[in-house]
Structures are given as C-alpha cells and as structure tokens.
Design a protein around this nucleic acid. Structure first.
Lengths: 250, 250
DNA sequence: AATATCTGTTCAGTAATACAGAACAGCTCC
DNA sequence: GGAGCTGTTCTGTATTACTGAACAGATATT
C-alpha cells in the first residue's frame, strides 16, 4: 500500500466547498451531510472552522452557510497574476469592435472551459463580470476549439463522460462530435450552433502556447440571425488574422 | 477545557493559503514551513492535497506553488451572489460622470476595506479589476469613513494595532486619528489626503444598512491638484445627494 | 395548541490519521 | 567534488478527527 501524501481531512473539507454552486449558494449542515454522505457533526466542525477563518459566512437568520469574502481576496491575488489576461485585453477589444459582437477569452482548465474575460463592442453596454465562470468542452465554441486539439485520450475522457443536452441543438452523440472535431482541426475554428444557449451562435479559434500545446480559445458570439455561415467564416478569419499580430510568451 | 468544534488540520491548511499574497504569489515547501514554523513534511502533505483538488497549482519548473483556478471559480460563485454590487453600479456610474473622477465602492470586511468595484468616468479608460482587493481602515478614504462609524471597541482595536506609514502623509498617531474620526462623524464624509498613495486625494461617504450598522463606503479619488478643499466638499455633497436616491434593502 | 419532524449543536470514546523527525534525492552554487 | 540548498519519502506515535447518539431549537403538521 503506497503512501498517498494527502491530508484526508482536508480533502473532505474541500469536498464541502465544492458543494456550493451558483444554483446553491447557501447550504445547511444537514444538506451538505446528505450530499457527501457524511456525518452531520463532521460537517458541522468543518463549517465552523471555515467560518472562523472567513472562507465561509454563516447566515444567522437561517443557520445556512455561503462562500465568504476571503475567497474573493484569494481570487484577486490570482487575478493580478494572470498576465495573459491583460495581454489579450486590447486584442479582444479590436475583435469586438471589428465584428460588432461580444468577444470571449477562455482558458483550458482541467477538462473544462474557464472564462477569463468578455469584451463588448462599443455599441453594447459592458455586462457582468464572467471571470471564473465555467462551461463544458463538448457544447461551447471555446470548448470545442480546445477539445479538438487535445490528445486522443483526453477526448475519449470527455466524450465518454456524461454530456447532458443544454438545448435541443446540443450534440450528444460522441461519434457525431468526433467528426466535427476533425472538421474543427481542418478549418482552424469551431462553431457553436446554439448548442449551449438557444438562439446564440459562436465562432471560436484555438490559442496555442509556444510549446504547441493548447492554452485556450478566443470566440465571438451573438444572436443566431446575425450569424449566418458566411458571417461565421468571415468572423473566424478576422479572429485568426488578429491572433497572428499578438506577441505572446506562453 | 471546552470543546472548540474546529478541525485543527483544516485550520493549518487555511494558514497555508494565507501565506500567498500579491507580493508572494509563488511559494515553496520550505518557505511556507518557515513562515508558519511547521514541519516541511506537514506542509508538503497539505500542498499536495490542495494541488490535487485544483486549489493550488504546482509549477513544475521550480516546484513552487501558487493559487489555482478553482479559487477563481469559487469567487465567481460569490460574485454572482453579491447583489449589492449590481445595485451600486449605475449609481457609481452617475457619480463618476458627475465628478469626472474614479468612483470606488468598498465593503467593511472584518476590520479591513474590501474593494468591490471601481467605475471610471467616460473620459478615462477602464483599468484593471479590483474586486477582492484589500486595504487598511486607518489610511484610506473608504476605510476612515467606515472606521468613524464603528464601535469604540473596534476603533481601539484598529488604532492599537500596527499602523505602518504608506506615504509621508499617513497619519500614524492614534490621538490625531481619533480627532479626525470625530470630524468625519460630524461632516458625514472622510478625506484621504495622500495617506495611502502619494499624490492621490480621496473623499468617501459611509453607507449604512437598514439596521443602521455601517456596511461600506463610496469614494471618489483623483490627483491631488484637482482635489482642493472646495472641490472636496462639493464632491462629498454630490455623493451624499446621489446616495439618498438609492433604494436599498440591506 | 400539542405533537411530530425537521433543523443545528454538543459531547465522549475510539479508531483513524496527521504530524514529527530523520533519511534520501535532486539541484545549484561555490 | 562537496556543501548547502531545495523537495520528497517513510515510519511510529501521539494527536485528533470522526462516529453515533442525545439534546435543543425551529418549523410544520395534525
């Protein structure tokens, strides 16, 4: 039996943190205990510790917990360290203004899309912050652009996992997706045809690091009526062209 | 000996997280062990566990660790839950445009300022994101506006703690600060006279919750030449006036 | 209004495990 | 080539985290 060098009680505590989501931002002791199939008292001790340190906040009115401001601060430290974010910002502004649509930039994190930034064209109002949002690889433009450039092994892992349909356009058949991934590699861009959000089409171009490995992707998305096939091809060309002008060091 | 209901190994792990800062975003095993006066192997196990779960990332080139993207995601969940943020946004835009200077909004978190948002006037380019940044209470406009409205006990705690000077204008004498806090209470606004950043003046107005407790503050700041005493008073009046129009539910 | 059934909380004993400490390995710099 | 760093591995022991049951407070039900 090899040693695994991990602190198991810490693993349990992190599992507790992972219970919180946008849909369930507030959870109680029993709720979490049921989710993780653990003892109430165990969860209670973990929650108390997290609360004392500011990682969780306890709502006194209903005794439920939510993620605390300390996490916001930790995230700020990361954010100020993501230099790639600032490098891409002017570049994204150009794309947003050249296309007149929203431009997204996402990184590959594990086997998920991690949204880093959204830039709106001058004509649109800047909306909410999306830094830190996540989305699956199989049904988003950014995701498919990255997925197509992963190893066969990683692709299998994604395609063999659960792929719940987000809209009636979501591609849930692994074989159909495999064919599309080949097309993406040949074209150099991926298209999301309302697969993640109905009525929204999206074109995404992969971004590679200097080592040749996939880093992330840049996309432009908007209402489907404005995104007919010719527009899609033209938009992909614009992004690809602008990407070439970008000096990077990753 | 009363039970404390906390998981001590988790406390240690959180202490490890707290070692990371903007100045030291990357730390090694020995470095952390020295900081916390703990065994190297203990830190190693904690770091390994954090890394496996994505909370920390290990840089393979130098074996140092940094905060990972999972924290970014957790912070995103919080962010989308801070409704006060969106409530204040249009209001801050009005102030930024009415004064032509940057408008800040911060919450009181513990005994520190937690920056929530910065809005730049139309004439200035939006700069970096500051959500999650922190600053002390004793030497910032936002901080002093809040500090003046805390309990005597909390004020003592801040004034008796270390108050390192950020600039040559930073007020480090508790007695001088006490007099100023009284002025702030009477005037209804606080002034930061280059105490945190040299050359930058700032006017801040406190924001109270419905219960009457201090929640945070709103400030306007800019280069000192533009912020002479009459301008400061006028700016404070603008913020106060706009604040009255804000319907809140906190 | 009284009971039932949820919550969150406390506590003591035991089984698990986290940590100390030493030894090893890989690296850089003298 | 060795001396000083790193990070990593490993084992025994003492700490302590978890189990499980009992209690308390709130809410819902009858």
């Amino acid at each position: 039996m090899p040693k695994d060098n991990t602190v198991k009680s810490l693993k349990r505590a992190i599992a507790v943190l992972d219970c919180f989501s946008q849909k369930e931002p507030e959870l109680g002791v029993t709720e979490i205990a049921r989710k993780l199939d653990m003892q109430k008292s165990t969860i209670f001790n973990i929650l108390t510790t997290f609360q004392e340190s500011g990682i969780l906040i306890k709502n006194p009115s209903n005794n439920k917990y939510q993620l605390g401001y300390k996490l916001l601060h930790l995230s700020y430290i990361i954010n100020s360290g993501i230099s790639i974010r600032e490098d891409f910002l002017p570049f994204m502004k150009e794309i947003a203004n050249a296309t007149g649509e929203v431009c997204y930039f996402g990184l590959l994190d594990g086997l998920e899309v991690l949204y880093i930034d959204a830039v709106y064209p001058m004509t649109q109002l800047q909306a909410r912050n999306i830094l830190g949002e996540r989305a699956p690889l199989y049904c988003t433009g950014l995701g498919k652009a990255m997925l197509a450039n992963l190893s066969e092994e990683q692709i299998n892992e994604v395609l063999s996992g659960p792929m719940p349909p987000f809209t009636k356009c979501t591609i849930t058949d692994p074989d159909v997706l495999r064919i599309e991934l080949e097309e993406i590699r040949q074209n150099g861009f991926a298209v999301d045809n309302m697969e993640h959000e109905f009525g929204i089409r999206c074109v995404a171009v992969p971004v590679f690091g200097l080592s040749g490995k996939i880093l992330g992707a840049v996309s432009v998305s908007g209402p489907s009526p404005r995104f007919d096939p010719p527009t899609i091809v033209r938009t992909a060309a614009i992004i690809t062209e602008k990407l070439k002008t970008l000096q990077r060091c990753y």
